[in-house]
Design a protein around this nucleic acid. Structure first.
Length: 220
DNA sequence: ATAGGGATTCTC
DNA sequence: AGAATCCCTATT
């Protein structure tokens, strides 16, 4: 498939070069493109994100400074930071520029757009007799599984066509998606950060979208 | 060399 | 509520 003809040209580096809180909101509606080794591709729309900062953010993987695992967070914006959690799941982050140019945005949920068959087929557990789930890539671990994102993709440049990149929303898509506004809430699973950090509303999502990893508390 | 724990998910 | 499961980090 040809990216230019299908409207899946990668977003430029400048899109990612901004504070991660801004980037986390801007990524809602952006398309995640996965090109498989057999040449087929899967595309989904990002509907939920979480912003993480640099060493100052007590919830961030960057909080103890650069290490081998979080090296990508300290690198140039627009690259992928992929990590494994609980020995089981791999999660995708988009590197942005928060404190001192360091930070990343966790992709928490992606709504299927194309290549749904491929997404379903590539899910880890083989034989599944139950009907396919409506929320295919809801939750960061499920995003990693559905898009076949392993640690080997850590550091991937998302601004160039390759195994994985990001493309601007289709015309009118973002406006339609966000017609009811952007929902915000505290980040998930970061209690270890302590009060003042764990409660910052840096989780963002398309309000009431069916593919959210979990509901946002109703506010206004 | 080794212990401790996690930006999770699914099932009971 | 509990298990599954392994890489990374910090410590001995």
């Amino acid at each position: 498939m040809h990216e230019s003809r299908t409207g899946l040209s990668p977003l430029p580096r400048s899109f990612f070069t901004r504070p991660t809180i801004e980037l986390a909101v801007a990524l809602l509606g952006v398309r995640l493109v996965r090109r498989w080794e057999d040449g087929t591709a899967s595309v989904g729309v990002i509907v939920e994100t979480e912003a993480y900062g640099g060493p100052a953010d007590r919830a961030s993987h960057a909080r103890a400074g650069p290490t081998r695992r979080n090296a990508a967070m300290f690198g140039p914006p627009g690259h992928a930071y992929v990590y494994r959690v609980y020995g089981l799941h791999t999660c995708l982050n988009v590197v942005g520029a928060a404190d001192g140019g360091v930070g990343a945005v966790l992709v928490r949920a992606v709504a299927p757009l194309e290549g749904i068959v491929a997404l379903a087929v590539r899910r880890t557990p083989p034989a599944r007799t139950a009907p396919p789930r409506a929320r295919l890539a809801a939750g960061p671990g499920n995003v990693g599984a559905a898009f076949g994102i392993g640690l080997e993709l850590d550091g991937t440049d998302l601004t160039a066509p390759g195994p994985l990149w990001l493309a601007a929303p289709a015309a009118g898509m973002r406006e339609a998606l966000l017609a009811d506004g952007v929902a915000a809430a505290a980040r998930v699973g970061v209690a270890y950060a302590g009060a003042g950090w764990s409660d910052r509303p840096w989780r963002f999502g398309v309000r009431d979208h069916a593919s959210l990893s979990r509901p946002f508390p109703r506010s206004g």
